[in-house]
Structure formats: C-alpha cells, structure tokens
C-alpha cells in the first residue's frame, strides 16, 4: 500500500497551516516528519487520518482518493493514528480500551489473538488489564495508545510525538517496539520533536518548516546535514 500526499493545503481560520505538502510513503517504509513546534507535522498526520479536512491538494492510498473520507472510514482502509497526548479512554479499563481499538472488526477469535499479541508485546498492559486507564503511568498510557491502534490491524501506522514527556529509558523501549512493528510489515509515519530518535529509527525523513517541506532525504543523510544538526539535533 502506497500513500501519496500531493500539494496538500490546510487552513485554520484562513491562516495557512500547510502549504503544498507532498509526501510519498511506499509499502513497509519507516518515514519520519521532523520540525519545530507549529511547523505542521501534527496537522499533516491529522489530515491524513481524516480529522482535518484539506482545503487543497489530494491524499491517495494506492489509487483511491481518501482526503474526503471521515476518520472512521480511513481507519477501515488500514491507516491507524496514535494521536498526540495518547488520548486513551481514561474511564475505561485497559482491556476495554484495547477492545475498542478493534471496534471495526467482528471476528471474535482473531480479536482475541490480536489481544494476546499486544499483551505479549506490552506485558505491563496485561498485568493492569482490569484497571482504569487513568491509573497507568505515562509510559504505560503511551503503550496502551499504541497497542489500541494495533488492534485495528493497521497497514499504515501514524504516530504523533510518542516520546513526549517520557523518561529516556521508556523512550528507548518505545523506539524499539516501533522498529519491531515496522519489521513486521507495517508502514510507519512518525512525527517527532525528538529528531535524534526519529532519524535513528526511520529510513527516510522530511523536515517541515512553517507549513512547508524544507528538506527531505534518507534519514542517515539528514542526520549528517549541517542545518538539521544545528536546528534539530542540538549539535
């Protein structure tokens, strides 16, 4: 499944948030969008997953245009979105959160298999499956948010700042898991302010600045780029 974004434009109250963004993400790729706060990274993800409607351009999945579809329909096509701030359902139990991730599926047996897979990937979630999600720590909540999105059996996984506010050791753990997920054939599009982590994980990267793509290249080349080093890697 190939995701292509062409000349995407988004306005919030007549202020342009995205100006002619174009991305090409091939099947199985691990792509990252880096950039400073307000550069348009989150907006790009939110537009792909259908939370925001574009004012121009198009988004295609293989040959199908998806930019006018609602979020729940886009999920059914295989694009899952782990939103910024985790956005788990705090008054529901861990298990209920995960079952809701599989809301679009009806096959009970396969859902239970998927659940087992999530639990084996995140054993701490299994230990806490009966608890209210609000009782989880920040890292556990991020795992729950990722686990929940995996329950929909995505082909493309969009992640918005999964490292935000987490201890470095947990950030490493999450990075490890993302790579694993990608190796199992899921395309990953990662938005991060932690450019260091993002460029380590991804094979291709885009640099967004004030709603435009300022630069794009293989991840290891971007990591070596002087501008990127200075502006985003703090070197």
């Amino acid at each position: 499944m190939k995701l292509s974004v062409q000349d995407l434009e988004v306005n919030y109250n007549n202020v342009a948030a995205l100006k002619q963004i174009s991305l090409e993400v091939s099947d199985g790729a691990f792509v990252t969008l880096i950039g400073s706060n307000g550069a348009g990274k989150s907006t790009t993800l939110r537009t792909i997953s259908g939370l925001v409607k574009p004012s121009g351009g198009r988004i295609c999945l293989d040959d199908q245009r998806i930019d006018m579809l609602s979020a729940d329909k886009i999920l059914r096509l295989g694009i899952a979105h782990v939103p910024e701030g985790r956005r788990i359902f705090k008054d529901l139990s861990v298990a209920e959160n995960l079952y809701l991730g599989a809301y679009i599926h009806q096959d009970k047996a396969q859902i239970d298999l998927d659940l087992d897979k999530v639990y084996s990937r995140f054993p701490r979630l299994e230990e806490r499956k009966g608890q209210h999600a609000r009782t989880l720590s920040g890292g556990e909540q991020q795992m729950l948010s990722i686990g929940r999105s995996l329950m929909s059996r995505p082909r493309i996984l969009l992640l918005d700042e999964p490292s935000l506010g987490l201890a470095p050791i947990i950030v490493q753990e999450i990075g490890h898991i993302l790579r694993e997920i990608n190796q199992q054939g899921v395309t990953v599009i990662l938005v991060e302010q932690n450019a260091d982590l993002a460029l380590q994980l991804a094979d291709y990267g885009y640099v967004l600045e004030t709603g435009r793509i300022a630069m794009q290249d293989k991840a290891e080349l971007l990591a070596d780029n002087e501008h990127v080093k200075k502006a985003y890697l703090g070197i």
Binding site: L75, R76, R87, L100
Partner: peptide, 22 residues
C-alpha cells in the same frame, strides 16, 4: 462493545473516531 464505544465518545470524541467509531 457499543456500550464501550458510547463511553469512549463521551470521553474523547476525536480519539473515538480514530478507533473507527462513527
């Protein structure tokens, strides 16, 4: 499942739509 979905929408409408909940 419908009951969970209902509670999910009441807690976070946008996150619920990201789970495919109409």
């Amino acid at each position: 499942k419908l009951g969970w979905a209902l509670r999910a929408v009441s807690q976070d409408r946008e996150a619920a739509s990201l789970q495919g909940i109409n």
